[in-house]
Design a protein around this nucleic acid. Structure first.
Lengths: 215, 215
DNA sequence: CCACCGCCTTGACAGGTGTCAAGTGAAAAC
DNA sequence: GTTTTCACTTGACACCTGTCAAGGCGGTGG
């Protein structure tokens, strides 16, 4: 790189342009976050652009400045949602030293996220359900579902290994079973059934022991 | 019944009144069926009264003649939906003579209803999901979920009995696991994955064997 | 024959929706 | 200092939604 005036101007311009791009992206992210919050609160059906804007610090018109479309906004929100929603449990797997420890740790972690992130979880199920009727988000849903499957499988596989056993079901089945358990618990929890969170750890532990067999 | 004129008139009047009552109820049922069909096709979010009417042979105004409200109509539709959705598998349980037979029969029946009634099933999941955000249908959803739990448990319990074994999970857990499996298969099936229906029987059989233990 | 009533259609209403054009005010560019 | 550009607001549009009032049409009762 040189040091002439024109080049200095170039880099300054580039930096400004970069900063503008970043600012543009940041605003998109900020608005997508507002959309996400609204979606988690109201569900897909009742979420309108004006409602999203009201959950941000801007007016409703700005959404069409940063997004071409409502679908564009929701897609961005879902992408952002993926980042939040998938990565869990991995530290648990890394730190586990015994089958029993991993089992109870995983079961407790599931109950914890059920209690803490119930709204986000129901949004995930809402999204997946939408894709049963409308194919706009199917690709994202299937991809996310696969990442969740992998995530669960890492736990189950390691658990069996620590127990000196083998898993008797395929990854997808293990995921579907535990997901069904979680969905059921989520329903109970959101119906103000306090037992849901309390009972979940024992249920999850029960399922884990049921799907492995001593080698 | 008598044969005097007055009595004949009475019975005729009564019959007319009865017929009118019946006709009123029949129309309600007919319109609720149209609503059900529309719901299964479009999902809760995109179902409007005009669309429902267009799936019947009447105009949209008639809905407010037979129903006080949109909620009233949807409630009636859901009630009707319950009748369709719950009773299955019982004949299977009654006719079963061996554990293996019941297992494969149940697994095949699940795959069959997955293929045949996919739209109705997705409506059920849509309904249950709505109740995560809105409490209007929670009572119906919880009741229906319980009936489905019982239905599944009758199969699982009888299966273990025939196998000379005991079930290692509670009824609600068995239901949640199998429901998760089915929901996953439904997603795949509606994404035009032909393997979904084909693979389901083996998966269900796998789960059944995993949740019992020889006494 | 006329009046009435049950069943249904038509058309309108108020409110909400996604979308977009016009405009504003401030900061940047020259 | 003027012009241009950016970031955002405002207000409007066409459309769709649930709701309901007004009216028509056919059959029944008097």
């Amino acid at each position: 790189m040189g040091n002439t005036v024109s080049e200095a101007v170039e880099t300054r311009r580039a930096r400004i342009a970069r900063r503008q791009v970043d600012k543009f992206g940041e605003r998109r992210a900020e608005l997508a976050a507002a959309a996400l919050h609204t979606l988690a609160e109201l569900g897909f059906a009742r979420t309108s652009l004006r409602e999203i804007a009201q959950n941000s610090e801007f007016s409703h018109g700005v959404l069409h400045y940063y997004f071409s479309d409502k679908a564009d906004l929701l897609t961005e929100a879902v992408r952002q949602f993926e980042e939040i929603c998938v990565t869990r449990y991995d530290e648990l797997v890394a730190a586990a030293t015994s089958a029993d420890g991993l089992r109870t740790g995983f079961a407790d972690a599931m109950a914890a996220t059920l209690a803490a992130d119930a709204r986000v979880h129901r949004l995930w199920y809402d999204l997946r359900n939408q894709s049963l009727f409308d194919d706009s988000f199917r690709k994202d849903v299937l991809e996310l579902d696969e990442r969740r499957t992998d995530m669960i499988w890492r736990v189950v596989d390691r658990y069996a290994e620590l127990a000196g056993a083998t898993v008797t079901v395929a990854p997808r089945i293990a995921y579907a079973m535990l997901d069904g358990i979680f969905e059921q618990a989520l329903l109970r929890h959101l119906c103000d059934d306090d037992n849901a969170v309390r009972d979940l750890p024992a249920v999850v532990a029960n399922v884990l022991t049921a799907i492995i067999a001593k080698a």
